[in-house]
């Protein structure tokens, strides 16, 4: 598509509506080759709708979209042949074994029997499922299923990997193993687009991300860049007894910004310990105080004015 730039994915004024409801309300996105790009936002922000349009399984309602240099509306099957898709919910073939899931899926791409057999062995190794190769999918744990779904998405050696909330519902060990595998793919040069509502995941994995809310992009940048732009270096978290209103007025002068949460008060400050001393000197006595580095979660709070809720 001429004039659409060089990115693997380029969206201009992209919109998606379902009847009267507009899930995506005009977004601009450009994903470069080799990059890990994130869509961050609460449920209902329009992340998954955007991902489905990029995956060529949901026609756009308006705007322009180019994926791998082609128009999904006209060349969907051709683009899909070069994509790897990890959906939000595992949709493995439960009537097939672990190995058959990889082999049969590879055949859908038109790959030869010999090729998929070798590839399946390789991917089982990658997903650490070699010893479960002949098990039924139902017998796998949540983490194993997720790894198998990711392995399946790699069966065609995709140019672009789309991961929709890859670690939702996994325990910490399983998440870290997955992150490690995704990082390995990044080093191998696989471009990835990830949606998540986990801030730590976005900080761990993404080179660049956009924050979506209500179908629009509210901020864009690298995780560090976003924190620098929208938050302070440190955050002082104070807890107060639940029966008394926190003394917000007294805290205000000591912070660049004060965020009142149901269970605690956040003070956005350049130096946490200095702020803590100043608050103490002003006679404020919280139940507990904690100084931490600013995170994407703080950016999110700032941008959307609320905590992440499901």
């Amino acid at each position: 598509m001429p004039g659409m730039g060089e990115g693997l994915v380029v969206a201009r004024g992209l919109r998606k509506s379902f009847g009267a409801f507009e899930a995506v309300r005009g977004i601009e996105v450009e994903v470069a080759e080799g990059e890990v790009f994130g869509f961050l936002g609460p449920n209902g922000a329009g992340k998954s709708s955007t991902m489905r349009m990029i995956a060529c399984v949901s026609p756009r309602s308006a705007g322009e979209l180019s994926v791998l240099g082609r128009d999904p509306d006209r060349e969907g099957p051709r683009i899909r042949a070069r994509l790897g898709v990890v959906p939000q919910l595992d949709n493995l073939d439960i009537e097939l074994s672990v190995r058959e899931n990889l082999e049969v899926y590879g055949r859908y791409f038109g790959l030869s029997r010999r090729h998929v057999r070798a590839k399946a062995g390789e991917l089982l190794e990658f997903a650490r499922l070699t010893d479960r190769a002949d098990a039924k999918v139902d017998a796998l744990s949540g983490g194993m299923k997720r790894r198998l779904t990711i392995a399946r998405a790699l069966v065609n050696d995709p140019d672009l990997l789309l991961l929709d909330e890859p670690t939702t519902g996994l325990d910490p060990q399983a998440r870290h193993l997955l992150w490690e595998r995704l990082y390995r793919l990044k080093r191998e040069g696989v471009t990835q687009i990830i949606t998540t509502h986990y801030m730590d995941e976005a900080e761990q994995l993404c080179d660049r991300l956009v924050v979506m809310d209500g179908g629009v992009i509210v901020a864009e940048g690298s995780p560090a860049g976003l924190i620098e732009r929208w938050s302070t270096r440190e955050v002082l978290e104070l807890r107060f007894p639940s029966d008394a209103a926190p003394p917000v007025a007294e805290l205000q002068p000591h912070a660049e910004r004060v965020e009142l949460l149901p269970d605690r008060v956040l003070l956005y400050v350049p130096h946490g310990e200095r702020a803590q001393a100043a608050v103490h000197a002003a006679g404020v006595r919280p139940l507990s105080a904690l100084v931490r580095r600013s995170s994407l979660e703080d950016v999110f709070l700032r941008l959307t004015g609320r905590t992440l809720v499901d």
Partner: peptide
């Protein structure tokens, strides 16, 4: 099982 959704992520 959403099997057809999985198939549509391929050229099928």
């Amino acid at each position: 099982s959403k099997l057809y959704d999985a198939m549509l992520a391929t050229p099928l």
